[in-house]
């Protein structure tokens, strides 16, 4: 079951490329691999914890006020991440900036709470949180690798391709849109080829 869940989270229900959820942080933060992974793991932490808590308290929440209740649970974990990041990773916190508090409104997290955690037991929701979170992290890393290599010719601060002039537009705003279009195009190309 764990393997199936992971496969679903990373491929068939990939939050960014297939479901198109959580675009804002993924485009804004993917300017370097470190930022991308940091954001992905922060969102995974929030997603997993909120999934667990929501599946625990799902019977206590009246149906009409469930969305505000979910948001409070999510916002609590986001605040925890915010404080931890400020204390232990101040450089990353500065880089991610406003996008750390904006994890609250990341549609992936509220979407999983509504579609999965409110209907399944604690263990299943925990696995689902980790699987979808990893799918998000992997997609963010793919985007960041493409953008960082093309845009500044660096990964983790090391030069990648000798004698390659980086195209700065890829780490600026337009590059984010171009990169995601490129990745979606490649995914479509391969899935079309599989069918034929």
């Amino acid at each position: 079951m764990i393997k199936e869940n992971l496969k679903r989270g990373i491929f068939s229900e990939n939050p960014i490329f297939v479901l198109l959820l959580g675009l804002c942080p993924s485009l804004a933060v993917s300017t370097s691999l470190v930022n991308g992974i940091g954001m992905g793991l922060a969102a995974t932490f929030v997603l997993t914890c909120s999934n667990v808590i929501i599946s625990m308290i799902k019977r206590l929440i009246p149906d009409k006020v469930r969305i505000p209740c979910y948001i409070v649970v999510i916002a609590t974990f986001v605040t925890i991440v915010q404080l931890l990041m400020k204390a232990y990773l101040p450089a990353l916190d500065k880089q991610l900036g406003i996008f750390v508090p904006l994890i609250v409104v990341n549609c992936i997290i509220l979407g999983r709470a509504e579609a999965y955690a409110s209907k399944n037991n604690v263990f299943k929701s925990f696995i689902d949180g980790i699987a979808i979170g990893l799918g998000f992290t992997v997609s963010l890393s793919v985007l960041s690798i493409i953008r960082e290599v093309l845009g500044s010719n660096k990964l983790f601060g090391l030069k990648v391709i000798p004698s390659f002039n980086p195209m700065a537009v890829f780490i600026l705003a337009p590059g984010g849109f171009f990169t995601i279009a490129l990745v979606m195009m490649l995914i479509r190309y391969y899935s079309n080829r599989k069918k034929v």
Binding site: A173, P174, G175, F177, F178, A181, M185, R188, Y189
Partner: peptide, 21 residues
């Protein structure tokens, strides 16, 4: 065909962002 639908929209958004730069 490969760009039909959302990918072309993303590219359009990228060109608009380029103009806004």
């Amino acid at each position: 065909e490969l760009l039909d639908g959302l990918p072309i929209v993303f590219i359009t958004a990228g060109l608009m962002a380029l103009a806004f730069l």
